[in-house]
Amino acid sequence: MISAKAADEKLLTVSASPHVRSATTSRMIMLDVIISLCPALIASVLIFGLRALAVTAVTVASCMLSEYVSRKIMKRSNTLGDLSAIVTGMLLAFNLPSSIPFWMAALGGAIAIVIVKQFFGGIGENFVNPAITARIILLLSFSSAMSSWPVPRQGLMVKAVDAVTGATPLAVISEGSGSLPSLTDMFIGLRGGCLGETCALALIIGGLYLIIRKVISPAIPLSFIGTVAVIMLIAKKGDFTALSYQILSGGLLLGAIFMATDYSTSPISFKGKIIFGIGCGVITCLIRIFGSYPEGVSFSIIIMNILVPHIEKLTTPKPFGTPKKEKKAKEEAKA
């Protein structure tokens, strides 16, 4: 037993309240995201072979190395421990064809981390999604390597044929020639495309995991995919099969579940999230319907990323109990 007097001779810790904290840390959140990406990673290996894993390993390693070196040069603390570089690396790989040369994949990782993330202050400060921006830069720089798609295995037990390249379903729809895979194949991912975007099943499992673990709110994925569904249903004149191809093809699920929900580049408030999701959906559809490029998810997310500060400003909730009349009066005053 220690008496109060004896204890007083030692210095006590003083800090601002609260004196307890939740167990959740940034690292745990990022770890959850990594876990949620694993089903899609496994699916990509099954669909496109071990090269999918190799590409992912290269981008993850490149991201981690870039993060370490760039922060060292900028004399900032080492932030590898928050695992966000691994998440960026995985997401970038998921947005690349499995046949991409390794050096391009590595370059993409460096662009994502150094230019998009660290130049703007590191985690939480980047205003566009690093993985998507890197993908777009690669796409514009090396368009042929970035748009030749290895054909997936024909059935899970057959070996993938690396040499042959085929078209993605969206390109088929856009050009109106070639044959589409069946909807079942689309759902389990047996189609041409970026290595992580094809298996809808795995992406949905990962998304549900994130929602159950409360890492993301379903607001953005649902409003994003919902908007695409509504617009496409109108555009395709109520053809549900065509609609299903639109939902399952391209990077829509990957983008809506994992990229548009990126904390740094999406609004915080619920209303803001809905506006953001709808905006992404509208731009995706405009590009898919009217654009010369068959895929619009990356561009839609990056455009909405840039609008986030404005969405935030418009959707900042009023403090508890602010009278409704005052709200209206303020809005009128603004207008």
Partner: peptide, 9 residues
């Protein structure tokens, strides 16, 4: 204390 990740919690 680490950098804010803007999670919105």
């Amino acid at each position: 204390e680490r950098d804010c990740i803007r999670c919105g919690r």
